[in-house]
Design a protein around this nucleic acid. Structure first.
Lengths: 350, 350
DNA sequence: TTGTAAGCGTTATCAA
DNA sequence: TTGATAACGCTTACAA
């Protein structure tokens, strides 16, 4: 009776693996139990929640576990509990550095709280994004959605399955964390106005982008307040290339300053303008959005409204983990934006 | 008999979860079996490997699965098989844009082959990195290590557990994918020599960095070949800031051109030099390494030896997945580097 | 405080 | 070709 294996009539499913384990791979709670002379369930108790077991056996078990270099098998644990200790993060586009900071933020705080981060790109359309979301739901305890293209109802459908936190967008009924554009934009517009600009343009991002809409609203409001006129231009895509393409519209519009939906657009626009012989900021001021990596590499360095994306990522992870830990949480968390005044904006010389 | 739950003497472990499932959450092969009027094991066969089941029942089962919106439970599957359909990627530093391309590459090809990518940062020292690696091993089928600080033996120890592929470094006995610096560097040095440079410096990265060593060797070889003298300078850290700090050493060395271990160093160096009044490339040429995102944002845009990092990531994932699919694979795959000639290098004017 | 045993969803062995 | 069933490693209700 001491060794059940010897009289086991059926060959274990993967004898090969077993052999390996006996050699070096990870031990199970059964191994620990045998070594400590207790029952496996006691081992389980000792190793999961503290204090459910006498101090003596606790030590016995911990020692055995250490000696055997025990590591829980997350899959075996997930099966009965349903908890995976994993959170998912879906970003719209790996190609966009905006998401780098978000990923980093989420990863860091996830790891801190002993959660694994799994990453997916939603590419393409809102529908494939929804599919990706559903698929991911199978493996994670909760999900962070960064700038999803899905519509609100789809997001709520996802949120009905498991906890979801949305970044860069507000969806009622779902916890969200968004940069509060107000402060940063008014600082930007005030700065522009103070430098004598009377007419500015906002270059929008994708039309479906919730964030782009908010930024445009913010620009309008701030302009009104500062008595400068604002007009909206459209970009084909929110990239450096899109920025280059919109240069002629900017020129044609006759504005002396432009805010763009994001830094990539701003950089493309600036370079195209410079290539055409214009001097930034002497002839035109350019202000980007986000303060992505590399925004200060340009000459002049880009003035931009900083979105604390890393903070968003980490705030989102924190909220998600809090909900998973049993907290109730709804509504929107706002992180402050601020103007980062660098060289691409300033007084008109002419 | 129609509802087993009512007469179940023992309350299921997570009755709450069960209820949810009955409402909407995912069905199991038992549900499908019941619906299709077959045994669960038949469902398993039908759904895993094709052709092990009669066409008729196959269809029956597939229809039922579709109707129930069945999704395998990866955890349940992982338990008996040991296969998780997950690969791990450990990067040294989230803060370094170099890794984003690698992540993107690995992610993309992983997803393509239906594998999930889990991400970890190894932060700090080689020892925590080893720990992270071991921990990760529990959850993944294989591991990609990007520029690890671990020593070769540790990497081999990891590789003994499960398939490992290393990026940006060569470890004998472990499949590696590395940029072949030779071509890119000789192009760079030739270009510099053709522009009349006689004495150039290489600004090294972290001393333990395998890659930095190879690059220095490459520079030496290429310089010898082109009859220009090469000297090596050290940086405190491989960042923009590190680049700024090394500026005075560069100045003191009297070289007219410098290659740096990476683009970040080059950018920092260039800005510091420019801030001190030097004109790039008229007074000094600067060549970076990697061609990271943003390398072309500078003025002048950075000349750099491009490492196809995305390709490395995707090649590593491909190799790993091939090994997991049963292929034998060792040795090193090299991806070609090339000079990207932009504005920061050129002829000396003086 | 500890042991017993059922159950999580899947795969794989064996028998039919 | 299909059905019955043990096994994967862990958690937890219940009994002791």
């Amino acid at each position: 009776m001491s060794d059940a294996n010897t009289k086991d009539p059926v060959v274990p499913i993967n004898a090969a693996k077993k052999q390996v384990r006996d050699g070096k791979s990870s031990a199970t709670i059964y191994d620990i139990a045998k070594m400590a002379g207790v029952n496996p369930s006691t081992v389980s108790r000792a190793l999961s929640k503290p204090g459910r077991v006498s101090a003596k056996t606790q030590k016995l078990i911990e020692d055995a576990a250490a000696e055997l270099r025990y590591q829980v098998n997350p899959f075996a644990r997930a099966l009965p509990t349903g908890r995976t200790n994993t959170i998912g993060l879906i970003v719209a586009d790996f190609t966009n550095p905006t998401f780098f900071d978000i990923i980093r933020g989420a990863q860091t705080t996830g790891t801190l709280r002993d959660y694994t981060l799994v990453l997916a790109e939603s590419a393409e359309s809102g529908s494939t994004e929804l599919t990706a979301g559903h698929r991911m739901m199978a493996t994670v305890d909760g999900l962070i959605l960064a700038s999803p293209r899905m519509d609100d109802d789809d997001i709520r459908a996802l949120a009905a399955e498991k906890p979801v936190v949305v970044i860069n967008r507000e969806v009622t009924g779902v916890p969200c964390v968004i940069p509060d554009v107000h402060k940063g934009i008014s600082e930007a517009v005030r700065s522009l106005a103070a430098n004598g600009h009377k007419k500015i343009a906002y270059v929008g991002g994708p039309v479906q982008s919730w964030m782009s809409g908010r930024r445009w609203e913010g620009v309008q409001a701030a302009c009104e307040w500062s008595h400068v006129s604002a007009l909206r231009l459209e970009s084909a895509k929110p990239t450096v290339d899109g920025g280059r393409q919109v240069a002629r519209d900017v020129l044609a519009s006759g504005v002396t300053a432009v805010l763009t939906y994001n830094d990539l657009l701003a950089i493309g626009l600036m370079r195209e303008l410079q290539a055409g012989g214009m001097v930034v900021p002497d002839q035109i001021s350019i202000v980007g959005f986000d303060d992505i990596f590399g925004a200060d590499f340009t000459t002049p360095p880009l003035t931009t409204v900083r979105s604390p994306l890393g903070e968003c990522g980490s705030a989102a992870a924190t909220r998600l983990l809090d909900v998973l830990a049993g907290g109730e949480d709804e509504g929107t968390v706002r992180v402050e934006t601020e103007l980062v005044l660098r060289g691409s904006s300033g007084r008109l010389l002419s």
